[in-house]
């Protein structure tokens, strides 16, 4: 059988010095390179430079001062926000992964292909609507005079305060991330070779042990990618903690807004943004390294 990627054709970026670069292939790669340079690398470099600028009379002036870094990183409220944001984003990731897993498992192993397709379609639908609108709709459901408390009232419970709490923030995060996590988990598990699961069961593995020792290890990469996506989206989300969490403990995105609102301190906001990016890069790289790390005995 032929190898999926033929070794007979040289890569356009071959290290052979006599090999001329394949301009045709390079041309097709240019748009994405330009895109990344213009809309990612460029703005990031500008943001790094901006973190050293100064604000005078509400106008940014070019400078190379470390005052913004020292001012932000020595403030207790910055680190309070930092650890709170990491904590709540981690909690959001754990919740989303746990809630999504049974649904994804059922879709991957119990549902017909037609049901799977419909389920994926229905999970994509929320992305057609504005996240802000979906978040505001929770006001009606979670307020003290809302739907949930009204139902609890029938059985003599409540009313409970759900808005302007960590619970409210988490509900917002789930609104944002859960459909995506279910989709990623479902696609990952649906691609597992069913023969391996059957083999485990035939060899006497209990259902729970099959999940732990066969399904989860085989879908490790997809699960970690889903978790990384969930963490990144929660970590950077402004809407849920602001509107459903009542900004009670400011997350880093809220701190960015607060910093720019007063005195137009965009350079200090840039410091917060860079810290967020560094954190996310570290977590994403660690996660991806874990996802693709080969287990013992793997070739």
């Amino acid at each position: 059988m032929a190898a999926p990627f033929s070794q007979t054709r040289e890569s356009p970026m071959s290290s052979n010095p006599e090999q001329r670069p394949n301009l045709y292939a390079l041309t097709w790669r240019l748009p994405i390179i330009f895109w990344q340079l213009i809309f990612f690398v460029g703005p990031v470099l500008f943001m790094v430079a901006m973190s050293f600028f100064l604000v005078k009379n509400y106008r940014m002036t070019e400078a190379f001062e470390f005052v913004n870094w020292s001012r932000m990183l020595t403030r207790g409220f910055f680190w309070d926000s930092y650890w709170y944001t990491i904590g709540i984003a981690t909690l959001s990731t754990v919740c989303a992964m746990c809630i999504a897993f049974p649904a994804a498992f059922a879709l991957a192993f119990r549902a017909s292909e037609s049901t799977q397709r419909w389920a994926i379609f229905l999970l994509i639908i929320p992305f057609f609507t504005s996240y802000l609108v979906r978040t505001f709709s929770w006001f009606v459901i979670l307020s003290e005079s809302g739907v949930v408390n009204a139902m609890l009232g029938y059985v003599g419970l409540g009313p409970y305060t759900m808005l302007n709490t960590n619970f409210g923030t988490l509900v917002g995060y789930m609104t944002l991330t859960l459909p995506l996590v279910v989709i990623l988990q479902t696609v990952t598990m649906a691609n597992i070779d069913k023969n391996l699961i059957e083999a485990a069961r035939n060899l006497g593995c209990s259902p729970l042990r099959t999940i732990w020792q066969v399904i989860i290890p085989l879908s490790k990469t997809g699960l970690i990618i889903a978790a990384i996506f969930c963490f990144i989206l929660s970590f950077g989300d402004f809407v849920a903690p602001f509107y459903l969490g009542g900004s009670q403990e400011p997350t880093l995105p809220i701190l960015i807004l607060d910093t720019t609102k007063s005195g137009q301190q965009w350079p200090r906001a840039a410091v917060v943004a860079i810290m967020m990016m560094v954190t996310l890069f570290a977590i994403a790289f660690t996660g991806i390294a874990l996802a693709y790390r080969k287990g013992k005995g793997a070739k």
Binding site: F139, S143, N164, F242, G246, S247
Partner: peptide
């Protein structure tokens, strides 16, 4: 304190009794 709000949030917070 139960929350920090912008105009819309302040409006909603008072309106829905939160």
């Amino acid at each position: 304190v139960g929350g920090f709000f912008d105009y819309g949030g302040t409006f909603n917070g008072l309106k829905n009794g939160e």
